Amino acid sequence: MHLLAAAYIPELPHYYRGKVRDNYDLPDGRRIIIASDRLSAFDRALAVIPDKGRVLTQTARYWFERTKDICPNHVLAYPDPNVVIGKRLDILPVEIVVRGYLAGTTGTSLLTLYKKGVRQVYGLSLPEGLRDNQALPEPVITPTSKAFDGGHDEPLSPDEIVSNGLLTQDQWQTVSRYALALFARGQALAAERGLILVDTKYEFGTDEDGRIILADEIHTPDSSRYWMADSYADRLEAGERPESFDKDFVRAWVTERCDPYTDEIPVIPADLIERTAAVYRDAYHRITGETIEPIAPDQDILSRIRANLAPYFS
């Protein structure tokens, strides 16, 4: 009752299930997006984390409302704490990541590439002598291709994006302007909360008139990296990893015990799941200044969502 592992509602049309979100497309061009409590990694659902879906939806709401003067977004309504009604868009085939620091662990992150000796990437020229987790001279956009069918994201330069027909020159300029302005707003508001917004992913789409619209989520703990501002300088000087919202307890626990891509996942301890839930709740409080209220003991989350979405039933 207190977890939302899935949100299949047969009265709603055109259901499809993403890694974390369950979606329904309405005939009038609206999309119902329900954030479940699933924790996804290694191309599979590992666990169900209490309050995760609510935290992601409400954190994104906080940021959508504080950035709508910069760029239009897909939000139409919030009928439930786990649900957003959005405008259905044609998602652009380029993933936009803005980075303010030399950080990251993935194969396409600036830090990973920099440590390999790469200085020319994403159409950028990186200076020599940068340290791990150091601030870049200015925030930069590091776009990648969107991987399909098990492929991997690949770095792109602005010239490649336009010459390959992924975006027009006007679209690229608009997306770039929006992304850098959103990131600047995010960094400024995060600083007021004692946080550093390190990097983030944005997803953009186009509506029926070709307008570029911000979609999906914005500045959530799943789409963004945050560091604690008060300890950053000391940790950088000591060569230590900056203090962050470390919510990877479950991922780390699983990888220590099996090959998560091929093996059966062991039963994950309840205390590990609760620690992860506590990190998400704490992240919401630190980012927004608000508190996720506990769910009433007798409340069934899916029943609540069904009741709130009844006006959208066919």
Rank of each mutant, 00 (worst) to 15 (best):
D43Y: 11
R38P: 15
A47Y: 11
F42W: 13
L46R: 10
V48G: 01
E65G: 11
D43F: 15
V48R: 01
I49Q: 12
D43R: 05
V48Q: 03
V48E: 03
F42M: 08
S40N: 12
I49M: 09
R66Y: 11
Y62V: 02
R66T: 08
R44Q: 13
L39C: 11
R54M: 14
D43P: 11
D43Q: 08
L39W: 12
W63A: 04
R61I: 06
S40F: 13
A47I: 10
D37S: 06
V48F: 06
F42N: 02
V55C: 12
L56K: 02
R54S: 03
A45F: 13
D37H: 07
A41L: 13
V55H: 00
P50Q: 10
L56P: 07
S36G: 08
A41I: 09
I49N: 04
A45D: 15
A41M: 12
A41Y: 12
F64A: 01
R44T: 14
R38L: 14
Y62K: 00
D37V: 10
L39M: 14
A60G: 15
Q58L: 09
E65P: 04
F42R: 04
L46S: 13
L39H: 10
R61H: 08
P50I: 04
L39I: 12
A60S: 14
T59V: 08
L46A: 14
Y62Q: 04
V48T: 12
R54E: 14
A47W: 09
D37R: 05
A60N: 07
A47F: 09
D43A: 11
R61C: 07
R44H: 14
L56N: 05
I49H: 11
D51R: 02
R54A: 02
L56E: 05
R61A: 10
V48Y: 05
